[in-house]
Design a protein around this nucleic acid. Structure first.
Lengths: 375, 375
DNA sequence: CCCAAACCTGAAACCGTTTTCAGATATTTT
DNA sequence: AAAATATCTGAAAACGGTTTCAGGTTTGGG
């Protein structure tokens, strides 16, 4: 066969360009063709310092510094000369030197748990967004829900003299967090803690669980199974508490025999769902303590030929991005992760003396899709 | 109603602890109870420098430095004194000062595109993993597929004098990348580029597309629709080229009327799938250029009552974590993202003069799940 | 017992900035 | 025109480390 891969690619490209129905406008990239590289570009570029710029522009380093930072007026001719030199030499201030002198690093540490977690990622995204244009940059490390690892990673951040730290959940103890907050301001999620240099954001998960259960109960469901989160996880406990409260308010008795523990991950969801189905008790709906558990449960039901929502209704919790594209799209309780990220940033910024506007705490809300039907 | 929320939570906790079937073992957390905070802990902690330690231990700063870095022998009594002082005062070397002197920051920049992208996240995870224990820490910024933003974020990294940079895809031109590589070693994905200070990793997407199409063709499918990626995206073009090649080898004619363009996101998948169904042509399978597109397509089929795989088979590409939990679990081509991250780290480390072992380039492989059936 | 070699240790210089302080000009004011 | 003020600029001192260099102790050999 005389097939040449390069020809194939060219052909494919033409085909794509010609016969495709554009479903959406894209910015056209200009650099899809490989370019020949001028060999002259290779090799190391000398790092240029303020001293070099000063020499080049015929002024003192102080003057250069003043121009770079705008800290004082300087004569126009020198300003021009310096700006030209900076542009010509591609000078970039060494942030380490600056940090050393100023005692501030313009970076904010962020301890997350897992870079792959869709909900933590969304928080980070909101955080990044809010930080944009403030001059601060985030530095992200992951602790993987492991106290020892978390401490080590925070150490990494503190050695870099971060100006502030945000802690997304994790296994650090309150005391450890307090100790950390003695060195720089801290904002943490998922706990309640008082301190002069620390702020916490605690969403009302009890209310969230309550909302979810009420939705199911109001649609006539009376035997609702629950796939919980880890029993040591406060949010899991709170969501379950709300679930319990809704039952009480509706006057329906809750059967503890149909609540099973998951682990907030898909796999825990399948395990729990299997046990639930195997235990022989009947139920018309299941409330999973988070979306990932719900996804696991959904898969088990698919495997066993149980239709959602015709046979049993399914609710999740979190509203991670994937839920909108499940089959069927999942009804869930939305945690405003993006806004949480925003809030965390604002909160920290205000502790750093930046004037940020109102900071509002977001609340949870029901998002109705298609995985729940009237009983 | 005399319902007290606190009581509810306690109750819920007890219930959870008591009646749950443990589906998996968890490390027990010891700090679920809120602890009263000793007020004495609050307030700022002075930052302690090498000078402070030296004074405290009755030696010179040089000696402290030598002990901290292990760069020379010092007498045991002084060593002990210094170590005690360090522990007592909780001394942590200021990395900015060290970087300033040493010209190395022990941090590696990583330009990703979107912290929420499941496949990029997996690469980062692999990268983090490989960096563990090397002394280097990653600093992650996002460019959001926007050249201007990418440049700005890279500037942020370079001001911090990163020791190396890894670029995950994006819109930077080859020339820009080359220019960047003049200041520190660079490793980039998704392009082929030569340079003394730059290395690139290019997976064979043509082969990947070929594998996917062959799977479908070998199962008897003859009219296979395709939802492509953006037409300016090299990987998308290559996957399509492989798709075309497989058709040629099987001697089946490919109908360009059933290939539609997506955008590598779920939404593009739904748009493309709708057009595909509306165009009236028949087909027995669809190959989506990535899993996210496949998810969008899957949703549309669900909406229109088309069963997968009974009515039409569906293949994705990437094997992002969520695919295993779709209904049905998605047959796809696995890109070894985690291993790619590993490889990137090793590659960069070796450019930094670290001795890393063999670095192998991972290859793609078919992962068969349940969304494809014999035609 | 003396001298050389080996070993420890501290003073000082330096990394690239910012900022204070004081000197030099330029601009008013009388 | 002299004095007083306002404005601009550069020298030098930090910031917190590492490292060179040289001085001071031991140790060991002859």
């Amino acid at each position: 066969m005389h097939y040449d891969s390069q020809d194939g690619k060219r052909l494919a490209k033409t085909l794509l360009k010609k016969c495709l129905t554009e479903t959406r406008g894209f910015p056209l990239a200009t650099n899809t063709e490989p370019t020949p590289l001028p060999a002259s570009l290779l090799g190391d570029m000398p790092i240029v310092t303020v001293t070099d710029v000063a020499r080049e522009a015929g002024v003192s380093v102080s003057t250069v510094s003043r121009i770079v930072n705008g800290t004082a007026r300087v004569a126009d001719d020198k300003r021009l000369a310096v700006e030209a030199a900076i542009a010509r030499m591609d000078y970039r201030p060494n942030l380490h030197a600056r940090s050393l002198k100023m005692g501030t690093s313009m970076t904010i540490g962020m301890l997350t748990q897992d870079i792959e977690s869709p909900f933590l990622a969304r928080v980070i995204r909101g955080f990044e967004e809010a930080l944009k244009g403030t001059g601060y940059a985030p530095m992200i490390v992951s602790g993987h829900w492991n106290q020892k690892e978390e401490i080590e990673r925070v150490g990494l951040l503190m050695a870099r003299r971060i100006d502030g730290l945000v802690v997304l959940y994790g296994e650090l103890s309150d005391e450890q967090l307090l100790e950390i907050s003695r060195r720089q301001p801290v904002v943490a999620t998922g706990r309640r803690l008082e301190g002069s240099n620390i702020r916490t954001l605690q969403l009302d998960h009890e209310q969230g669980g309550y909302i979810a259960a009420c939705h199911l109960l109001s649609l006539g469901h009376r035997r609702i199974a629950h796939i919980s989160g880890p029993s040591f996880h406060n949010d899991a406990i709170d969501r379950y508490a709300g679930f319990v409260r809704a039952h009480e308010e509706y006057g329906v008795e809750l059967d503890p025999g149909i609540v099973f523990q998951g682990d907030f991950l898909e796999h825990g969801g399948v395990l729990a769902m299997n046990r639930l189905l195997d235990c022989g008790k009947n139920f018309t709906a299941v409330f999973a303590a988070n979306d990932q558990s719900a996804m696991g449960a959904r898969l088990v039901m698919h495997r066993r030929g149980i239709r959602v929502p015709e046979d049993v209704s399914l609710m999740g919790f979190d509203d991670i991005p994937a839920t909108a594209y499940l089959t069927p799209p999942l009804t869930t309780v939305r945690q405003p992760f993006f806004e949480i990220g925003h809030y965390l940033a604002q909160s920290l910024l205000s502790m750093l003396g930046r004037d940020v506007g109102e900071v509002t705490v977001p609340s949870m809300e029901l998002v109705i899709r298609e995985s729940v039907k009237r009983c």
